[in-house]
């Protein structure tokens, strides 16, 4: 997927109509970016293997791997 440099991951998700960024740990409900300024934590995603990153505060980068976060995020190691 191609996204203008400097754009946030959350903006990229919304522009490409990917709808939601995460599901909640309690009821598994879908959630989407709400504040776009780092205060609501609705946009937490797994970015380059690290869970709980605020997609509205992370600019896109070449080759970046972005996944929706389910619940509290997985722990690999």
């Amino acid at each position: 997927m191609r996204v203008p440099a400097g754009e946030s991951v959350a903006a990229a998700v919304l522009v490409h109509a990917l709808d939601h960024t995460r599901t909640t740990p309690v009821s598994h409900a879908p959630r989407a970016p709400f504040c776009m300024m780092g205060v609501c934590f609705e946009c937490v995603m797994e970015i380059d293997g690290i869970a709980n990153r605020q997609a509205c505060l992370v600019p896109v980068a070449e080759g970046m791997q972005i996944r929706r976060q389910h619940g509290t995020g997985r722990i690999d190691e």
Partner: peptide, 28 residues
């Protein structure tokens, strides 16, 4: 920050703060 005001359905995707939409316009 924008005042969080809970109302039924405010957690649904597609519901967003207006200031957040302004940030999207300004930055992207």
């Amino acid at each position: 920050m924008e005042r969080p005001v809970p109302f039924p359905g405010w957690t649904l995707p597609g519901v967003m703060n207006l200031g957040a939409a302004q940030i999207l316009l300004k930055s992207a």
